[in-house]
Amino acid sequence: TTITITINGEELRIRGDHEEIHKILKAWEEDHNDEEIVRLIRELAER
């Protein structure tokens, strides 16, 4: 699965399995701050 998210003008492409993507979207849905979401995404992007 690949998704693209733009946060603060920075486009981040994430490839991951369903569970990893779900974790990010769940954090977003629960209204975590952008920095935390960006950190989760970067961790995935670095793999």
Rank of each mutant, 00 (worst) to 15 (best):
H22S: 09
T4I: 12
E10N: 12
H22L: 13
L44R: 03
L25A: 03
E10M: 13
I21Y: 03
I7C: 07
R15M: 08
N8W: 06
E43Y: 12
E29V: 12
E19M: 09
I5L: 12
E29S: 14
H18Y: 15
D34K: 11
A27L: 15
T4N: 04
T1M: 14
R13A: 04
G9C: 02
E19K: 11
E29F: 12
A27Q: 10
L12T: 02
G9I: 02
H18D: 08
I7N: 01
E36D: 10
T2F: 15
E30M: 14
R39E: 04
G9M: 03
I7K: 01
N33C: 09
H18E: 11
L44M: 10
L40Y: 04
E29Q: 14
E43Q: 13
E11G: 04
V38G: 05
V38Q: 11
R47T: 13
I14P: 00
K23F: 10
R39Q: 06
I7G: 00
I41S: 01
L12H: 05
T6H: 09
E20G: 05
R15H: 10
R42G: 03
I37Q: 01
E19C: 06
I21K: 01
N8D: 09
A27G: 05
E29A: 10
I37E: 00
N33I: 13
E20K: 05
N33S: 08
H32P: 15
V38M: 15
E43W: 15
T2H: 12
E43M: 15
I37N: 03
E11V: 15
D34S: 11
E35H: 07
E35C: 09
D31H: 12
V38C: 06
E35S: 09
D31V: 05
D17V: 07
T6M: 13
W28V: 03
I3S: 02
R39G: 04
E19V: 11
G9Q: 03
E36V: 10
H32V: 09
H22K: 10
D17Y: 11
V38F: 14
T4D: 03
I41G: 00
K26M: 10
H32Q: 13
H32I: 08
I14W: 04
G9T: 03
N8K: 07
G9L: 02
E43C: 14
I37P: 00
L25F: 12
A27I: 10
R13G: 02
R47I: 14
L12C: 03
E19S: 10
N33A: 09
I5G: 00
E10Q: 15
T1A: 11
R42V: 04
I21L: 11
R47L: 14
L25D: 00
K23L: 08
I41D: 00
T1F: 15
T1Y: 15
N33Q: 07
E19Q: 09
L44H: 03
I24S: 01
I7H: 02
I37A: 05
W28G: 01
D31S: 10
D17I: 05
K26D: 04
A27R: 15
N8A: 08
A27C: 06
D34G: 10
T6I: 14
H18N: 09
T1R: 10
R47Y: 12
E36S: 08
R13I: 11
H22I: 07
T1G: 07
R39L: 07
D34W: 13
K26Q: 08
E30D: 10
L12I: 05
L25E: 01
T4G: 02
E11Y: 15
E19D: 12
D17H: 10
H22R: 12
A45E: 06
L25G: 01
E36F: 12
D31A: 09
R47M: 14
E46R: 15
A45N: 08
E19G: 07
E36Y: 13
A45L: 13
A45Q: 06
I37S: 02
T4M: 10
T1E: 12
I7A: 01
E11Q: 15
R13V: 11
I3V: 11
H18Q: 09
R47H: 14
I7P: 00
I21G: 01
I24E: 00
G16K: 03
E46D: 12
E35L: 11
D34H: 06
E10A: 13
H32F: 09
L44V: 03
G9H: 04
I21V: 09
K26L: 08
T6N: 11
T6L: 12
E11W: 14
I41Y: 02
T4F: 13
L44C: 02
T2M: 14
R13Y: 09
I14K: 00
E20W: 13
G16Q: 03
R42A: 04
E46M: 14
R15Y: 11
I3P: 01
R39D: 03
R13E: 05
E11I: 15
A45K: 04
I37K: 02
I24C: 02
I41V: 05
E36I: 08
T2I: 12
E11C: 14
N33R: 06
D34I: 13
I14N: 00
T2C: 07
E46W: 12
R47K: 13
I14G: 01
E43K: 13
L12G: 00
I3M: 11
L40I: 08
E30C: 04
E46Q: 11
E20P: 02
E20I: 08
K26H: 06
R42T: 04
D31F: 09
N8G: 10
T6E: 05
A27W: 11
L44I: 06
N33E: 09
H32G: 08
V38E: 06
D31N: 14
T4C: 09
I5A: 01
T6R: 13
W28I: 07
E36P: 02
E35A: 12
E35D: 08
G16N: 04
E20F: 13
I37L: 14
W28N: 01
N33M: 14
D34E: 09
L40W: 05
G9A: 03
T4H: 06
E30Y: 14
A27E: 04
W28C: 03
V38P: 03
E30T: 13
T6C: 14
R42E: 04
L12A: 01
E20S: 11
I7D: 00
T2Y: 15
L44Y: 06
D31E: 07
D17G: 07
E30S: 13
T1I: 14
E19Y: 12
R15L: 07
R15F: 14
I7L: 07
R13S: 07
T2R: 05
I14Y: 03
D34R: 09
G16Y: 06
T1W: 12
K23R: 14
K23G: 06
A45P: 01
L25Y: 12
I5S: 00
E35R: 06
D31L: 10
E19N: 09
E29R: 15
I24V: 05
E11P: 12
E43P: 01
H32L: 08
L40K: 08
H18F: 12
